[in-house]
């Protein structure tokens, strides 16, 4: 089931087309929005939020029409912008409670949930401090908290790890992953950092120059046709290769002690043949895994072949 479906969407800034006849179905769960700078990722998010009016096309988000039901859509969406956007002169609790009230929470509920989501986001006692005194990492957390305070069904996270140190990045990614996998909230993560997307998302949408280049499960995008396997041996062995070839496996590539082999059958059949070849050649298999591309390779292929 998709949480958003967009058809033939064109968004223009003056004469520049930021999105061109863009059509996509955004599935439930954690979805990464990938693309180089200027690809149209943020424009897509801002169109969903109703910040920009499309030149043409239509879309539905969580069952609401994007052109007619903007307020209803924004009521059930949480948005974490890329840039700092804190209301000056407020403590974190006041800020998040205010954001909750703006989303329609009754004042008492807003205050209560502000405390809860700030605690959940890891701000602890710092939530009583003024936001202006926060570090970059804390500001990212408070942006995350304000997006979450009203219990949205969909979170739009624009570059959630921007400016974070490795530890902060790790913690933020864990939060995003947890929200998506354990709290039942669909998350659309907009980023140009492939490892972040790979860590948190099950699916990706790849954009380039305002057009859709690829979309689907990350697992599928990374898969290689022919179902090859990667076999890591303790040490190089020509005998192993010879035995494997006798059993119908073809050597595709070799990186140090790792061989990429491809059989004619399933992955299980290829693995079985690899074990038999190892036994025959008295080689020790250290690691055996279904071969797949890195997300980076899949991404590069999507943006260069489009």
């Amino acid at each position: 089931m998709s949480i958003a479906s967009i058809h033939d969407l064109t968004v223009k800034y003056g004469s520049f087309e930021a999105l061109k006849d863009f059509t996509v179905d955004v599935p439930e769960g954690a979805v990464g929005l990938l693309g180089p700078n200027g690809a149209g990722k943020t424009t897509l998010i801002k169109t969903i939020l109703g910040f920009v009016t499309p030149a043409k096309g239509r879309g539905e988000v969580l069952g609401y029409d994007m052109s007619r039901d903007g307020a209803n859509i924004r009521q059930i969406i949480g948005y974490m912008p890329e840039q700092d956007c804190h209301i000056p002169g407020m403590s974190a609790v006041q800020y998040v409670a205010y954001a909750g009230e703006l989303s329609g929470l009754p004042p008492q509920q807003a205050l209560r949930r502000a405390h809860e989501v700030l605690e959940y986001s890891g701000l602890g006692e710092a939530r009583y401090r003024h936001v202006e005194t926060y570090s970059t990492g804390m500001k990212q957390r408070i942006k995350f908290a304000q997006a979450l305070v009203h219990g949205p069904k969909l979170l739009l996270l624009d570059e959630p790890t921007n400016g974070l140190d490795p530890r902060g990045r790790e913690e933020m990614l864990n939060l995003v992953k947890e929200v998506a996998s354990e709290k039942g909230i669909s998350v659309l993560v907009c980023s140009h950092l492939l490892p972040d997307i790979e860590r948190t998302c099950e699916s990706v949408i790849v954009l380039m120059n305002g057009t859709l280049r690829a979309s689907g499960k990350i697992r599928d995008l990374k898969s290689i046709s022919g179902q090859p396997i990667d076999v890591e041996l303790r040490e190089d062995s020509d005998v192993f290769i010879a035995e494997a070839q006798k059993l119908g496996l073809q050597l595709i590539s070799q990186t140090r002690h790792t061989f990429r082999l491809q059989g004619t059958g399933t992955v299980d059949e290829s693995a079985k043949a690899a074990f038999l070849a190892a036994e025959a050649s008295k080689s020790q298999i250290r690691h055996l895994v279904r071969a797949e591309r890195s997300l980076e390779d899949a991404f590069l292929e999507a943006v260069t072949n489009g």
Binding site: F51, R74, P81, Q83, D84, H86, I87, G104
Partner: peptide, 22 residues
């Protein structure tokens, strides 16, 4: 004086307008 200027400076317009608030 700061009623909108502060929001312009801190980008907090995004916080208002990303909610059901026109």
């Amino acid at each position: 004086a700061g009623v909108i200027a502060n929001d312009n400076r801190s980008n907090s317009l995004l916080i208002y307008l990303s909610r059901p608030c026109t």
